[in-house]
């Protein structure tokens, strides 16, 4: 079947099997490999991307279900000149990563947290990221990064592709 979607601002149309998962479409068809597949069971959040303004786990969405949608992956966050998204900057500055495997999903989910609540407490950040696991247990600095990003202004809770993360 044909699916069309806008990924990181670019329109894509591909002929895919209906059973193709969005995570595999992004990684294997479009070659966008920042989106990691961790547990493959909707538990770890490593595959989190933003679809039509909402964070979702792309291992549990069919590409067919995202047909016609606006999708943003980690690759779509930095500006054309390489300027990092405020959430990426905050993760770097606060050292919000250790091995880095959970980081793409963590950053996308964190943008979703700020979209929902622009100035969360530590507890609200932790609850907002409950669907994302860091096997290094580097949560303290991740929480610090998200709270620091919140201070950078509303852009930290938005993706650049002309679509504010609105809920």
């Amino acid at each position: 079947m044909k699916v069309s979607m806008t990924v990181n601002g670019q329109q894509h149309t591909d002929d895919v099997e209906p059973r193709l998962l969005l995570a595999h479409y992004l990684r294997d068809v479009l070659g966008l490999k920042a989106t990691n597949i961790g547990c493959d069971t909707t538990s770890c959040g490593a595959c989190t991307v933003i679809v039509d303004g909402l964070s979702v786990k792309s291992c549990t969405v069919l590409a067919a279900q995202a047909d016609g949608s606006q999708v943003t992956t980690l690759e779509g966050l930095a500006g054309p000149d390489g300027e990092l998204h405020p959430m990426q900057k905050a993760f770097r500055e606060e050292h919000g990563l250790q091995c880095g495997f959970c980081t793409p999903g963590m950053v996308m989910a964190a943008i979703g947290v700020l979209a929902d609540n622009p100035d969360p407490s530590d507890r609200e950040v932790r609850e907002g990221l409950e669907g994302n696991l860091c096997r290094c247990t580097g949560y303290h600095n991740i929480v610090r990064a998200v709270r620091s990003a919140a201070q950078a202004g509303p852009a930290a809770g938005q993706v650049p592709q002309d679509q504010e993360v609105a809920r």
Binding site: T42, T48, S55, K57, V61, A109, E130
Partner: peptide
């Protein structure tokens, strides 16, 4: 239910 990503779907 689940986590925010699950509740979005």
């Amino acid at each position: 239910v689940g986590d925010p990503q699950v509740r979005h779907r």
